[in-house]
Design a protein around this nucleic acid. Sequence first.
DNA 1: AGCTAATCTGACGTTGACGTAAAGATGAGC
DNA 2: GCTCATCTTTACGTCAACGTCAGATTAGCT
Lengths: 139, 139
Amino acid sequence: MTLRIGEIAERSDVTPRTIRYYEELGLLPRSEREQGKHRVYTEADVERLCELTRLRDLLGLSLDELRSMITAEDGRADIRRRFNETDSREEQLALLDETLPHIETQLALVRRRLSALQELETELAERRKRVQRRRRDLA
Amino acid sequence: MTLRIGEIAERSDVTPRTIRYYEELGLLPRSEREQGKHRVYTEADVERLCELTRLRDLLGLSLDELRSMITAEDGRADIRRRFNETDSREEQLALLDETLPHIETQLALVRRRLSALQELETELAERRKRVQRRRRDLA
DNA sequence: AGCTAATCTGACGTTGACGTAAAGATGAGC
DNA sequence: GCTCATCTTTACGTCAACGTCAGATTAGCT
C-alpha cells in the first residue's frame, strides 16, 4: 500500500507544499525516485509526519530545531536497521546505548515544558479561587 | 518609581522595539503622554509584559490571539478599578461574575495543552522503558 | 491511445514578528 | 545651560514557514 503526496498530506493534516518543503529541509527523507516521478510514501511516513507536527505545535520548535531532533531520530532508525542485521551481542548493546540519550533528550524537553505549564496552571487556579472566595464573602 | 522603555525592556527580557510593537498592536496600553515625550511605565507593566511573553512562549499563541485574551485581561483591570470605586454590593457581585469566565478560559487552554503534553510524555517514557528492557535482557 | 486528475519543478508572493538605520528630540546630571 | 545617553518617529529590511501560480509531466482508467 503506497500513498501519494496528497493522501499522506490529508492524513497528516498538512498541505502537499508543506511536505515538499520539509523534504527540502531534510525533515523528511527524499524518497528515492527519478526526477519528475511522483513521490511515494507509506503509513510509517504518515506517523513520522504526525510526530513532527506534534513536536512543532506542542513545543513550539522551529523547523531547524526539529531537524536536529530528527537527525537524532534518523540515527535511531539507522541504529535499528543495523541492530537487526548484526548478531554480535556486544554491538547490540552499544547500539541500544546510543539510542537512549536521544529519547532522554526529548523527554527532558517535554518535562521542562510540562513543569512550566503546571506552574502557570497553579497560578491561574489560585487566581480563580481568590475571585470565587471574594464572591462567596459578598453573597 | 517610574521606568522608561529601556528598563522595562530589560526586566521583561524583550527589546524596546518589541514593546513599541506590542503597544501598536494594542497588547500594551498606549501610555498617556504628549507626542514625542518618553514613554513611562511601572512595575505592574513589567509583570503584565512578562505574562504576555509567558503565554506567547508556553502556549505558542500568536500576538493576535494574545490580544483577544488581553482584551479579556483589560476587562479585568477595568473591572477591578470599578470594583474599588463602587460601594454597591450588587455591582461588586456582578463584576466578579464577569471576571471568572476570563480566568476560566485561560485555565481551559492551559489544561488542554497540559494533557496533550502529558500524553506525549507518557509515550516517550514508554519508548525509553522498552529500550531499557531490551538492554537488560541483553546484558 | 486518450482523457483527466493529481503531481512535478521552479519561481515569486505573503504574513507575522520583529530588526535596523536615520535624524531629530528629551531629560538626568553636572 | 550644556552634554550625552536614551528615547522619539518613520520607514525600509529580514527571516521563517509556507502559499500560489504556471506550464509541463505522470499515472490510473477506459
